[in-house]
Design a protein around this nucleic acid. Structure first.
Lengths: 332, 332
DNA sequence: TGTTGACATGCAACCGGTTGCACGGTATGG
DNA sequence: CCATACCGTGCAACCGGTTGCATGTCAACA
């Protein structure tokens, strides 16, 4: 028979303090409208009674939930946590709370999640969205959306452009004498993958190198290991992977076949997530994911403020190639 | 002049469908009470009008928000994302949404966050809480709380017990002939750190080894690097670190001083987060963080269901020492 | 001293669902 | 053919804040 220590409502505070409910409400939301002493009195009573604001009630009458949703393809992919963190911190500073959900690399699940969150949040930040463009447009009409690493007209977005860094990597490989290289591609539908592949392809064409595109199942360590056979039999002497996880999977597998990186094979990763930790340390593309999360959050917030949404703003973030120890001469 | 395509309410659905508001509500919540054809009719109209349930309104009248909060000390610490992910997935399967927040290793911030979430969620999962016990008890009286890696009476909790694995590591070091080893401790207030330190200490005492406790600033790579001087001058030949990040920081710093692991120094990490990726691969303690997240979520849910909270259930998860390549003979 | 206005507070409607209860209609059983 | 039960639906109160407007008080000013 646990005495349910239910939290009191403003009515109970009002009664105890001998004022109207509206005054209690104002004591918290617009204290400047009240006599200072009244505010103090009300706050004191509220404190004594252990008052906790009922957010649902406030949200219902104001129409603002004070929440946003942050959807990512895979929480456990080390690429995302720094972004999640910075976005959450930025939101918190503006008194917003953030829902986090993982759509498991699936566009369908993404849609389901948006629908579920639609009634609970004021806006949604979508990372590496897999949804078809028209669906995205449809949702964007109903609820403020900001995209990260997805380029859709008229929807605000922040893009991390690894193009120039990847070209630099290609050039590095070419300088060492590599003539045939592979790109271990990531999720084919993503903007990120398309953009990375296009940049690499552009430069290999220009330099007259042969580029072999090898798809991977998922941007994970295991998928990297799984494509090594195909990669080796393609005859390439170096490779650029969609991300560090794939690159590391390849290194692991090569190592188990007694093929040393970089002496027997050169490899470049992307995202600079686990690359400082690999053996040997992986040359990789570093990108400002922390900054991206913060900016995405700020974009959503600015979207909430304005009525005539000046849609379509874009922010492009640059990247940096971090040279470590996984590029060497081609092995004949 | 963007025509605000406001989402309709049940009243508008009701009017359009020629039924009462209550029927619309029931069409979604308890369709078995209505004539099947009525349900279909209502759902059709709702679909046409693009109806979206207003969660705040529902929450206000039912008293259930359908949300929980998940608070972690540091989202970017690779130990947590798998736990976050599994908890979120588990919650989602029960139609719950999860708020994520980072309390930045601070007990104060933790309190602020709980207070902020209190009115928005039905329960809180607290990972590695830094709050004083009495505050925790206080909150637990107001809102269902489940702890992970914190041991407080009468509050449900899941504990990951690395004790036996760490003892195994000590034994391994002793077997190699190490007589003086260090423990690079983590956040001193955490249960996890106390428990790890106690286990190690217990066995070194038993075996007659000298144990040097060296505190670190934060469980991060940089903090690991920073304590190497102190560690070396203490005269130990091997060390166990609170987590992989610290261990890796130490390895990096040793490496820059031309001290090779494991030939010049032996080291063991904990959490098995980045240990497979380090150079050389780090011997570390693997723990079921994924399982922990899921269980914590299930505990919260069971707490919500019952009235007379059978508080204080505990679940202890075991760990496993993964031997890799960072333990060798002591260097004289 | 009467008028005006600023300030402090109360009243009551409203936000959008949910739900106990009442009501009318139809089927069932005696 | 009537009594009873059940089924489908509507009515209206309620959840707990917020807010436009009305009211009352008091000081300043003419």
């Amino acid at each position: 028979m646990s005495s349910k220590s239910k939290v009191p409502t403003i009515s109970q505070i009002a009664e105890r303090a001998g004022v109207a409910r509206s005054s209690v409400s104002r004591a918290f939301t617009r204290p400047e409208l009240l006599n200072a002493s009244t505010v103090i009195k009300i706050r004191k009573v509220a404190e004594e009674l252990g008052y906790v604001l009922n957010s649902s009630a406030r949200a219902l009458s104001t129409g603002k939930t004070g929440n946003i949703a942050f959807l990512v393809p895979d929480v456990a992919n080390p690429y995302f946590p720094p972004m999640i963190r910075s976005a959450q911190l930025a939101a918190e500073n503006l008194d917003y709370c953030v829902f986090l959900a993982d759509f498991e690399e699936s566009g369908l699940k993404e849609e389901k999640l948006i629908e579920r969150f639609a009634g609970k949040v004021e806006g949604v930040i979508l990372i590496s969205s897999r949804m078809p463009e028209e669906r995205l447009q449809g949702f964007a009409e109903k609820i403020p959306i900001v995209l990260v690493n997805r380029d859709v007209q008229r929807i605000p977005r922040v893009l991390i452009d690894a193009g120039s860094s990847l070209k630099q990597a290609v050039r590095l490989l070419a300088d060492q004498g590599h003539e045939e290289i592979a790109y271990l591609s990531g999720p084919s539908v993503t903007w990120t993958n398309k953009q990375r592949q296009a940049s690499i392809s552009e430069l290999t064409n220009e330099l007259g190198l042969r580029l072999v595109i090898i798809p991977t199942e998922k941007p994970s360590l295991e998928s990297g290991q799984a494509v090594v056979d195909k990669m080796i039999s393609s005859g390439v002497t170096g490779a650029i992977a969609f991300n560090d996880l794939i690159a590391h999977g390849i290194m692991t597998e090569l190592n188990s076949r007694a093929l040393k990186v970089p002496n027997s094979f050169s490899i470049v990763g992307c995202d600079n997530s686990i690359s400082p930790y690999t053996n040997p340390p992986l040359t990789s593309v570093s990108n400002e994911t922390t900054e991206a999360g913060k900016i995405a959050c700020e974009m959503i917030m600015s979207l909430l403020g304005e009525t005539n949404s000046k849609n379509g703003q874009i922010k492009v973030l640059k990247t940096l190639l971090i040279e470590r120890e996984t590029i060497g001469l081609p092995y004949k």
